[in-house]
Design a protein around this nucleic acid. Structure first.
Lengths: 216, 216
DNA sequence: ACCTGAACACCGTTCAAGT
DNA sequence: ACCTGAACACCGTTCAAGT
């Protein structure tokens, strides 16, 4: 479930420290932004700052590991929604969940975008999430609830867009994203509209590698 | 037209240096990202790095000034589109233009979001842009081309969202944003859809000057 | 007024010395 | 194997000395 970049097994205390650092960093970044220093994270975790770099090659990798955790958590929530009775409203609930996750962790998510490109951990977690989203999307598509040229990847990218659209005013109007998610949802639901321009980007599906979770 | 935070008139050489720094920084940031050092910018402009801080209080303000230029440029393009014969397609063209501006200056735009909140220069330029967008939107609304609860601010924020949605894959699929802009456009065009949830955020229209509303 | 670069403070990252 | 903090390099920012 959790993204394990580590191939080897860690000594008990090291594993505990790694988890402690991840949790401390996630909480601190969420509250004060990703610009909090590594020294501060280490201090809060009660560890030396050298230890941070023993577990994560650099600050970006620490942030990446937190992002992976979030992506996997959302992926798990999506998988659970595959059992919902109404596929289309399940998909919309999934999108709502996705934006909420981002709202909770503003700065980490934003940093995640720039890091994401090129980080194999985030790539893999993203592909897993694409897979989950695709399964949800396929059900809704079969139901005829959404236009038939929409992919799971589209859904993930668009829910990111809904969040980002509202982000500049998040401080003053915290729930504005619901408005923009509604616009996007209407766009996805308009089954009568012309086909979308540009094909959806094709990325390797999680089925071809990394033993991802079974779905549908 | 251009954002003038400077109240006083600058000496000729100082004004030239300021412009030189803005252009050099814009070009360098666009190519290598906003993490390029101030020293490097100064070197490229053939000036001492102290000069950068004489014109811009800090690095964020330098980036903010570049963002203001871009916003004003887009605003000008939007104003020109007010003369177009078809209001609805003029609005869509404006949105397309808006995403293109961002694509050209990836990192500066992204940095602009986090800085934007709280920077009076960006606030003012944004309000100006909202005004332009509102004028374009109103024409389209009157024509009946788009749903009647959409504001100019919505249009700006949503075109940001379209760009951001496609941003993670911009390297590999540079034109993917067209796909997501199309989804959003369909959402805006669906005049038969239910009213949007959450009211559009009301921000001071560009008519009232920014004397800064204080908030923590 | 404006420009400059040396000097300062801070932060990410490394590494030799410790358990 | 893992932890640690002193040491290093780099960068944003300041400021006294120059034109």
């Amino acid at each position: 479930m959790t993204a394990e970049t580590q191939p080897r097994r860690l000594r008990a205390d090291a594993a505990r420290n790694r988890r402690l650092l991840l949790d401390t960093a996630a909480a601190t970044f969420a509250e004060y932004g990703t610009e909090v220093s590594i020294a501060e994270i280490a201090r809060r975790a009660g560890l030396g700052k050298g230890t941070v770099f023993r577990h994560f090659a650099n600050k970006d990798e620490l942030i990446a590991a937190i992002v992976c955790d979030q992506l996997d958590r959302l992926s798990a929530a999506g998988t659970a929604l595959l059992d919902a009775v109404d596929p289309t409203s399940a998909l919309l609930e999934f999108m709502t969940l996705g934006v909420e996750v981002q709202s909770r962790d503003r700065s980490v998510c934003e940093a995640g975008v720039s890091i994401g490109v090129g980080d194999p951990g985030i790539q893999a977690a993203t592909d897993r999430l694409f897979g989950t989203a695709e399964a949800l999307t396929e059900r809704a598509r079969r139901q005829g609830g959404i236009r038939d040229d929409v992919t799971g990847q589209d859904v993930i990218l668009l829910l990111r867009g809904a969040y980002q659209a509202a982000a500049p005013l998040a401080r003053t109007v915290p729930e504005l994203w619901r408005r923009y998610l509604a616009v996007i949802a209407d766009g996805l639901l308009s089954t009568t509209a012309a086909p979308l321009p540009r094909p959806a980007s094709t990325r390797p599906r999680p089925t071809d590698r990394n033993d991802g979770m079974p779905h549908g």
